[in-house]
Amino acid sequence: MRRLGIAAALVLAAVVALWIAALKLLPDAPADRPRPVPASTAAVAQLPGLLHVPVRGVARSALRDSWGDARAGGARAHHGLDIPAPAGTPVEAAAAGMVEKLFESHDGGTTVYVRSPDRRWSYYYAHLAGYAPGLAEGQAVQVGTPLGFVGDTGNAGAGNFHLHFGLSRTAPDQHWAQGEEVDPFPYLVGRAPRR
Rank of each mutant, 00 (worst) to 15 (best):
P133W: 03
A9Y: 00
A17H: 06
T111M: 14
L135F: 01
G190T: 10
T111R: 11
I6Y: 02
G80N: 10
G154W: 00
R120G: 06
V99A: 06
F103E: 14
Y125W: 03
V182I: 15
F103C: 10
L50I: 09
D28P: 15
R71Y: 08
S168D: 12
H106A: 14
A192N: 03
S105V: 02
D32I: 09
Y187P: 08
L50F: 08
G88S: 07
F149C: 01
V91S: 09
R71N: 09
P117E: 04
R33G: 09
E100Y: 04
R169F: 11
V141T: 05
F161C: 05
V91H: 08
E181T: 13
P36I: 08
E104A: 14
A126Q: 09
G68F: 07
K24D: 13
A192D: 07
A22E: 14
G154T: 00
S168L: 14
G151M: 05
N160D: 15
A94S: 15
A85C: 08
T145A: 11
P184C: 05
S66Y: 12
G148D: 08
L63K: 05
V91E: 11
L102P: 10
A29P: 11
G88L: 05
P90G: 03
D118G: 02
L81V: 10
L47C: 01
T170Y: 06
W121H: 08
Y113K: 04
V58M: 06
G154M: 03
R3G: 04
G166C: 06
R3W: 02
S40H: 07
V182D: 06
L147Q: 03
V141D: 10
V37C: 11
A31W: 10
D107E: 14
R2C: 01
D32E: 15
R2N: 10
E104T: 12
Q178L: 12
